[in-house]
Amino acid sequence: MHTHTLMLFVASACYIGASLCYGASFSRREAPGARLAPWLLALGFGIHTLDIVRDVVSAGVLPVATFAGGFSFFAWLVVGIYLGLQARLSLAVVGALVSPLAFLAVTLDAIVRGDDVAVPQALRSPWLPVHVTLAFLGNAVFALAFAVSAVYLLQENLIKSRHTAGLIRRLPPLEKLDRLSAGFLMWGFPLLTLGIVSGGVWSANSTGHFWTGEPREILAALTWLLYAGLLQLRLLGGLHGRRAARWTIVAFSLLLTSYVAVNLLRLGTRHGLGLAG
């Protein structure tokens, strides 16, 4: 087994361990594994980081040339942001959602991706890492907005339907979830915008056109518009609570669909590369 695959399997083992521990902390009081969860997640993240660094050093580019590689990089960012925030926000429930995501991504990466990735010339542009990092960061932050919004809807449902027995006590208060969802939108939107602009610049550098009208670009523009509208309504239109949470979920679903459509179905990918706009 290659070091790369081996490292990813170790990381994946840590992530599944973290998932189980987070799960346990929601199922029972004083579950013995609950305290281990963030440590396992951090350990998985550390190994995952080493693997990405190794990739960057050996190949000279971010390992996002394949769908699996991109997904894994995305999960790495989500886990990184979550770990960075968890001390301040105590959001174990988001950890419980993020850990299995990371497990899936890393396992898929370990199974699907080979060791040698042929790096096409287009990926050698200095604009590419900028574009990829910004766009993926934006996506990762939106994924967290999606996660807290989903938890919001769950918690709201528990309160409204008087299911006051168990889970309701372990989920954060509604107001906090709503505030965090808005906060993630506010951080994600500029990142998305910069990601799209840098993508255009990269495209202009390699093809001479800023906008080529490909489906991926149209989907990116649609996603941007949806998030712009959502943020606008949140900040100025008094959009809150349930409706805001639902729209945040819709927006991320569109983002995810366009990512999958572009990468798996190869909708208008000029270079045949697994890159989302």
Binding site: Q155, I159, T164, I168, R169, L171, P173, L174, E175, K176, R179
Partner: peptide
């Protein structure tokens, strides 16, 4: 108790 599930 319930209020603290709604308000932060």
């Amino acid at each position: 108790d319930l209020a603290s599930r709604i308000f932060e």
